[in-house]
């Protein structure tokens, strides 16, 4: 009996959490007049797939998703690569000022992007990078958080492994890519998934540095679709579904890495 109660409660809560997603999918398959009809249709009896084509082509969601994919991949690869390089230096190399530079890296975590975005807009404009992929990617290439996490992971590489690798004639570069990075793979994966998730969802920065279709990302495209597609609101819903597909895949395929990335700070704290 108590078990049944628990399942009942879980199911009710699951329905509430899922409802906005469910209604989005349903409305993307209804005609606008069906969406506006009262009482509302909660099930697509006669699914209309046209809204997806309209969102993809007429609403430019196809183009925006391509832009988002390029920008997100650029940010993710750049962040992970730069963090790996810096973390290696902090974990395995000795140089004057190392401790100070590490503190500099940590300090960047205390300066939110929202505090500096308008001057960065000016910088990107001065560099002539408005409406370009470069303008969307550059400010996010480095991450203090990522360098910190990877340094922690590198520090757990046993000293004997380094000695053995040195005896085998491994230089730093080979040791980094053949030994250190493979051993830190869970952290690299968590960091990559986390970087993808946050880069794909960015809104403020793409909103201000793009004002045409060339580099505009899908998140800004969704807001634009909502403003412009008032008469066929089903197209907006289709756009939301399309824009969410990459993240759904990410969640289903890399759930473990995602959880690791999201909880990286919490478990320690």
């Amino acid at each position: 009996m108590r078990l049944a109660g628990r399942y009942l409660l879980l199911s009710v809560l699951a329905l509430i959490v899922l409802f906005p997603i469910y209604i989005t999918v349903v409305n993307s398959l209804l005609r606008p007049d069906q969406i506006a009809s009262r009482p509302p249709g909660l099930f697509p009896t006669d699914p209309q797939w046209g809204a997806y084509k309209e969102a993809w082509e007429g609403g430019h969601i196809g183009r925006y998703m391509l832009n988002s994919a390029i920008v997100t991949t650029g940010i993710m690869v750049g962040q992970v690569l730069l963090a790996i390089l810096a973390a290696y230096a902090f974990a395995f190399l000795e140089f004057p000022g190392r401790g100070f530079l590490f503190v500099v890296f940590l300090t960047t975590m205390m300066i939110p992007f929202e505090v500096v975005f308008f001057t960065n807009y000016q910088t990107i404009a001065d560099l002539g990078l408005l409406n370009t992929y470069g303008g969307l990617i550059l400010p996010f290439l480095a991450t203090g958080f990522g360098a910190f996490l990877l340094r922690q992971a590198f520090l757990t590489v046993p000293g004997e492994l380094r000695d053995a690798a040195a005896l085998d004639g491994y230089g730093h570069w080979r040791f980094l890519w053949r030994v250190a990075v493979p051993l830190a793979r869970p952290t690299v994966a968590a960091l990559s998934v986390f970087a993808f998730l946050s880069a794909w969802g960015q809104y403020l920065w793409p909103l201000i540095v793009t004002d045409d279709d060339r580099a505009r990302t899908v998140q800004v495209g969704l807001a634009q679709l909502r403003r412009e597609a008032l008469n066929d609101i089903n197209v907006t819903f289709a756009g939301v579904v399309l824009a969410s597909i990459p993240l759904v895949i990410l969640l289903l395929a890399f759930q473990r890495q995602l959880v690791r990335g999201l909880t990286a700070g919490a478990v320690k704290g």
């Binding site: 809560l13 699951a14 959490v17 899922l18 906005p20 997603i21 209604i23 989005t24 998730l197 794909w200 969802g201 809104y203 998140q219 800004v220 969704l222 807001a223 679709l225 909502r226 907006t236 756009g239 939301v240 824009a243 969410s244 993240l247 759904v248 990410l250 969640l251 759930q255 995602l258 999201l262």
Partner: peptide
């Protein structure tokens, strides 16, 4: 319960 991680601020706001 984890599913809303797959939405973005913009998607949630439009919905």
């Amino acid at each position: 319960f984890s599913s809303t991680v797959a939405t973005s601020v913009a998607a949630a706001s439009v919905i």
